[in-house]
């Protein structure tokens, strides 16, 4: 019996010390990891969709609450003025979620462009939605257009053999247009 108690006590003590240590390390690295993910995952797409901005886009991000959900919005500034915003929107693709960064020009109410952040689509097929030949479909378009693939009577050229993945990207764009209209005023006020 005594041996048993000792076993449990030692294991608990080890687990407790390890847990505390890990919590401390987690706390210490949390901020940096978050930033590293933004720089490395969102960064390239952001630099693309908010191309002519002069500010540090990743530093100038805001959290905006819509329907009790927090959305991170990246602000692109020119001469200190916010000219465009971008945020991430996801939709279900063929194999999993596709994360799409969508940029909007605030003055012209136009899409500046999109960039695919994360996806698990099939290489050579669905994965090709991340190539410029597809994403350029969304470059500099008025937001009142209908973003659907041609098969669904839209205007977007789907990646051949990957209608589902292309549809997912379109639906992410349409969702983000809805969100954009909802938050635009909040952002403009902050200017």
């Amino acid at each position: 019996m005594r041996e048993y108690i000792r076993m449990v006590a030692v294991l608990t003590a080890i687990a407790a010390v390890c847990g505390l240590l890990l919590a401390a390390v987690k706390k210490g690295t949390e901020k940096r990891i978050e930033e590293q993910i933004l720089v490395n995952v969102q960064g390239p797409a952001l630099n693309n969709v908010l191309a002519s901005s002069t500010n540090d886009i990743i530093q100038d991000r805001e959290e905006i609450t819509v329907d009790q959900e927090i959305k991170i919005v990246f602000l692109g500034k020119k001469n200190g003025q916010i000219w465009a915003i971008a945020f991430e929107m996801t939709a279900m693709g063929y194999k999993g979620k596709i994360g799409v960064m969508v940029g909007f020009d605030l003055e012209k109410d136009r899409l500046t462009g999109i960039g695919i952040l994360t996806h698990q689509e099939t290489p050579g097929l669905g994965a090709r939605v991340s190539e410029p030949i597809f994403t350029n479909n969304f470059k500099d378009r008025v937001i009142s257009e209908i973003f659907k693939v041609k098969k669904d009577n839209g205007t977007i050229d789907a990646v051949s053999g990957a209608t589902i993945s292309s549809r997912a990207v379109c639906s992410a764009v349409e969702q983000s247009i809805v969100l954009y209209s909802a938050i635009k005023d909040q952002v403009v006020k902050k200017k």
Binding site: L22, V25, K26, T29, R32, I33, Q36, V39, N40
Partner: peptide
């Protein structure tokens, strides 16, 4: 291992 994982993510992301 978890410590390494966190530190790597924070300082050597790629």
């Amino acid at each position: 291992v978890v410590i390494v994982e966190l530190v790597m993510k924070a300082y050597f992301f790629s």
